[in-house]
Each structure stands twice: as C-alpha cells, then as structure tokens.
C-alpha cells in the first residue's frame, strides 16, 4: 500500500487547470447578470407562447424548455451574490438597449400561424448566440477561481445544445415549402441584424475582445 504521508502535488499531472482567467469578479458578475436577464425573458416568452401555438408537439416542447431556462435564471441568480452582487436585481439587465430591442422583436409574434417565426427566433438565432457566449465564458474564465460559474454554465450548455437540437428538428419538420423556407430565413435575418447590433447576448465582447491586435495574448 502507498505511504499515505508521502507528499504529493496539489494538482495531479493530468489536471491542467491554470490561473488566472480572463474575467475579473466584476466582469463575470456583469455577464452572469446579463445571462439571468436573458434567461428570464426567454422562459417568459416560451411560457407565453405555449397558449398561442396550435401544434401539440411544439406546445409541449415549449412547456418543457420554459423550465430549462427558468432553471438557468435561477442558477445565475444564485451565483450573483457569490460574485459580490448582493442586490441580484441590479445586474439583472440587458447589456444595452439594442439587446432589449432584440428581445422585444424576438417575442413579438403571437398569431397561431407564426410558429415558424417564434421557433426561428429562439432556435436559429438566440440559442446559437447563447451557446457561443456561454462557451466563451466557460473557456475563458478561471477553472479554479470561477469554478462555480463554470459548473453552472456546463449544465446550461448541456440544456442549450439539447434544446437547440430539438427546436431545430421541430423547425425542419414544420418547414414544408419554399415559401416557408423564405419566411424562416427572412425572420432569421431580421433578428440576426438586431442581435448583431447588440454585440451578442452580453453586448460587445460576448465572444471576446472586439479588436484583436497582433501579438495580443488573451
């Protein structure tokens, strides 16, 4: 049996976690606040849309996904005080007015004939943006100092990937004609332009520095 008192390294050879990360406490908190705000707006929209979509399978999926995003909001809400933000409402905000405008446009469709528009907004525009921003945060923050955020983002990303796949499959099953392809792409383009103007789900820098200079090491 190995000597239990023999000194061993704190980090096993396969544990490659490093310090520091690219986010300060404040940076991480600001993003977490943006995420909470967005997840709230998203679960509210999905919950509201449940009654407006006639397709039974879509109705049930929206009901299920509504809870996924509510849980994400709850995870982010619980993380905020741990990032020194005791007023969890203060940072629960859109990163900029452009993001507010995007969300407003995202949740605008109501008519029962507009299921494609509703789903395109969520599954072809917003979820890919969320996956991108969460992945950037997950990869960039310190796996030691900000591990709790990382852990939550990991859970959230798992939902996002699975929900995206399910939503995309629903869309592919709903789009049956060239005209509906046009509707979907038109809707996607409208919303892409709005979220582009917002700079992503946590504003400019959602995926990293806006301008990368030669030799910069981040």
């Amino acid at each position: 049996m190995a000597d239990p008192y023999k000194p061993r390294a704190a980090f096993a050879p396969w544990d490659r976690r490093e310090l520091p990360g690219i986010f300060s406490v404040e940076d991480s908190a600001r993003r977490v606040g943006n995420y909470k705000w967005l997840e709230m707006r998203l679960f509210e929209s999905l919950g509201g849309w449940v009654a407006t979509v006639p397709e039974l399978d879509v109705k049930l999926v929206l009901g299920r996904h509504c809870y996924h995003h509510a849980w994400h909001a709850e995870l982010m809400d619980k993380r905020l005080p741990e990032l020194r933000e005791m007023d969890t409402d203060r940072l629960c905000e859109a990163p900029n007015p452009e993001m507010e405008a995007f969300v407003e446009a995202l949740r605008e469709p109501e008519a029962p004939e507009h299921t494609i528009e509703k789903l395109v907004g969520v599954f072809r525009v917003l979820l890919p943006r969320k996956i991108a921003a969460y992945t950037y945060h997950l990869n960039g923050t310190s796996r030691i100092t900000d591990s709790p955020t990382q852990r939550s983002l990991g859970f959230m990303l798992q939902d996002e990937f699975e929900d995206w796949r399910e939503g995309e499959m629903l869309l592919q099953s709903l789009i049956e004609t060239p005209e509906e392809v046009d509707r979907a792409t038109r809707r996607q383009a409208e919303l892409e332009k709005l979220i582009l103007a917002a700079g992503g789900i946590s504003g400019p820098g959602s995926l990293g520095p806006i301008v990368a200079t030669e030799g910069a090491s981040l």
Binding site: M40, L46, G47, G48, W49, V50, Y67, W71, A73
Partner: peptide, 21 residues
C-alpha cells in the same frame, strides 16, 4: 405559461415565476 409571461417583475416575484415555469 401565461403566468410566467403576463406579469412584470414588479408584479410577480422572481421565485413565483420560477415555480410557474
């Protein structure tokens, strides 16, 4: 679902909306 959407943050507490979700 409508209860998650119909009320603004100042009308329905965050935790209530989570329960409704």
């Amino acid at each position: 679902g409508r209860t998650t959407f119909d009320f603004d943050d100042d009308e329905a507490p965050f935790a209530l909306k989570l329960d409704m979700a």
